[in-house]
Amino acid sequence: MPAPPTPTLTAVLRAALLVLACAFASGCVSVMPWERERLANPDMQFGGAEELHSAESHATEVREGSVGGFDAAGGGCGCN
């Protein structure tokens, strides 16, 4: 008999499914274009203001062992 999934993995999968379900369910809730004015403001954007954050993101990212997921932060060896 196969071993049951560990509680941790099960919890993570359930949480991921819940987030996906909420996201897609809300896709059925229509938000009219004229209701999206507030969402168009710069403070509601993900990854906006590249001119303000790209160099800092690069400098931070090269000092960590992780990469990806968020916005790309340039190339190079990251020796700085």
Partner: peptide, 24 residues
């Protein structure tokens, strides 16, 4: 070699959610 998938969802006139995965 990398691939990225991002889903952005407007939840309400005041709320927005983004989930994503990137593999390299």
């Amino acid at each position: 070699y990398g691939a990225k998938l991002i889903l952005t969802q407007i939840l309400s006139p005041e709320a927005i959610l983004q989930i994503g995965y990137e593999g390299m």
